[in-house]
């Protein structure tokens, strides 16, 4: 029986999880850039039909296939198979700046946060007001932020960004169920309900550097809205 208390957070190692779905144009570069920051690096692929997996394999990176239900299943699987106490999620489309990883880790290692999300609001985004769809998407996510801030009495500027560092045990404790990208906000809302500390750090969002977006605003907004409402009425 293990009677010892776990060691301090300062020494916690990092697993970086890169969820992919048909990202052959950008995956090699992303993996290259992320490597120096990762004690463990895993690509979790949602049944890509292009050369994504092949490229990742060639780069010597471990590739695991999820159940293909969406990005949410990749996140959940990532938390389960990561072997380090901190898990960083970063997109495979080149939207995120790998050198921001230390910024995401610092609040966790200093025991000031359990989930740290890169904020596009304070870090800037190439996509702000780029087109009508982007405007709607931005407005929607701002509204969700406001709602979350009000309900849980926090001041978060970005709750939707997939670029985040998570204390693995905290992530697992949330018993997340969302299969799609709604998992990002599910994670935030459940974490706040459980009293986990969620923080933002500025991180710049680049426009996707290749490939196609998997999130089509006109198709998903209802799902996002219903998901928020469900968590608002949930008992603590």
């Amino acid at each position: 029986m293990d009677l010892t208390v776990k060691d301090s957070r300062i020494n916690w190692k990092v697993t970086v999880i890169v969820p992919t779905l048909d990202e052959e144009e950008t995956i090699a570069e992303v993996l290259e850039q992320v490597k120096p920051y990762a004690d463990e690096l895993i690509v979790i692929d949602g049944k890509s039909e292009d050369r994504t997996k092949l490229i990742a394999n060639e780069a010597g990176v471990k590739v695991v296939t999820d159940n293909g239900m969406g990005k949410g299943s990749a996140i959940r699987l990532g938390l389960q198979i990561a072997s380090n106490p901190i898990v960083v999620f970063i997109d495979a489309d080149g939207s995120h700046e790998a050198s921001d990883i230390p910024k995401l880790l610092a609040p966790i290692r200093q025991n000031q946060a359990d989930i740290v999300i890169g904020s596009r609001m304070t870090g800037g985004s190439d996509e702000l007001f780029y087109d009508a769809a982007e405007l709607i998407r931005l407005t929607g996510s701002m509204l969700i932020n406001l709602t979350i801030n009000y309900r849980w009495n926090v001041r978060l500027s970005d709750t939707q960004n997939g670029y985040r560092a998570v204390v693995r045990d905290a992530g697992l404790a949330l018993n997340m169920v969302e299969n799609s990208t709604t998992i990002e906000q599910e994670m935030v809302m459940k974490a706040l309900t459980c009293g986990y500390r969620v923080a933002n750090v500025p991180s710049h969002e680049y426009r996707r550097k290749g490939g196609k977006s998997k999130v089509i605003v006109s198709k998903v907004w209802v799902k996002y809205l219903l998901n928020v409402i469900r968590h608002l009425v949930r008992q603590t």
Binding site: V5, L172, A173, L174, C194, G195
Partner: peptide, 18 residues
């Protein structure tokens, strides 16, 4: 007691979310 505050929070959250 040989437990940490983190472990307490995880346990309560896991149980609650189950």
């Amino acid at each position: 007691k040989k437990i940490t505050l983190d472990q307490i929070r995880h346990a309560v959250s896991i149980a609650k979310n189950a």
